[in-house]
Simulated scan of single mutants.
Amino acid sequence: MKDIYEQLKEVIMAILPMAVLIIILQFTVIGLPFDIFFRFIAGVIMVGLGLFLFLVGVHIGLLPIGDMIGSALPKTKKPWLIILIGFILGAVVTIAEPDVRVLASQVDQVSDGAISNLVLVYAVAMGVGFFVAVAMARTIFNIPLKYILVTGYAAVFTLASFTPDAFIPISFDAGGVTTGPMTVPFILALGVGVASVLRGKQSTSDGFGLVALASIGPIISVMILGVIYG
Score class of each variant (00 low, 15 high):
Asp3Ala: 14
Tyr5His: 12
Gln7Lys: 09
Lys9Glu: 11
Glu10Gly: 06
Val11Ala: 08
Ala14Ile: 08
Ile15Glu: 06
Ile15Arg: 07
Leu16Phe: 15
Leu16Ile: 11
Met18Ile: 15
Ala19Met: 13
Leu21Cys: 07
Ile24Met: 08
Ile24Ala: 15
Thr28Ala: 04
Thr28Tyr: 09
Ile30Thr: 15
Pro33Thr: 01
Phe34Leu: 14
Phe37Pro: 04
Phe40Ser: 03
Ile41Ser: 08
Gly48Asp: 00
Phe52Arg: 05
Phe54Gly: 00
Phe54Val: 07
Leu55Glu: 12
Val56Lys: 06
His59Met: 07
Ile60Pro: 02
Leu62Glu: 03
Leu63Asn: 08
Met68Gly: 01
Gly70Leu: 03
Leu73Gln: 04
Leu81Phe: 14
Ile85Glu: 02
Ile85Gln: 06
Val93Tyr: 01
Ala96Phe: 02
Gln106Cys: 03
Val110Tyr: 15
Asn117Tyr: 15
Asn117Leu: 08
Leu120Glu: 03
Val121Cys: 03
Ala123Met: 12
Ala123Pro: 00
Met126Arg: 01
Met126Tyr: 04
Gly129Gln: 09
Phe130Gly: 04
Phe130His: 06
Val132Gln: 03
Val132Ala: 00
Val134Pro: 03
Thr139Leu: 13
Phe141Val: 04
Leu145Val: 11
Lys146Leu: 14
Leu149Phe: 11
Gly152Thr: 05
Gly152Ala: 15
Phe157Arg: 05
Ala160Pro: 01
Thr163Trp: 05
Asp165Gly: 10
Ala166Gln: 07
Phe172Ala: 01
Asp173Cys: 05
Asp173Ala: 14
Gly175Asn: 00
Thr179Asp: 04
Met182Asp: 05
Thr183Val: 14
Val192Gln: 04
Gly193Thr: 08
Val194Leu: 04
Ser196Met: 08
Ser196Tyr: 07
Val197Gly: 04
Leu198Asp: 00
Leu198Ile: 15
Arg199Cys: 08
Gly200Met: 08
Lys201Trp: 04
Ser203Met: 14
Thr204Phe: 10
Ser205Arg: 12
Ala214Asn: 03
Gly217Leu: 02
Ile220Thr: 07
Val222Met: 06
Met223Lys: 03
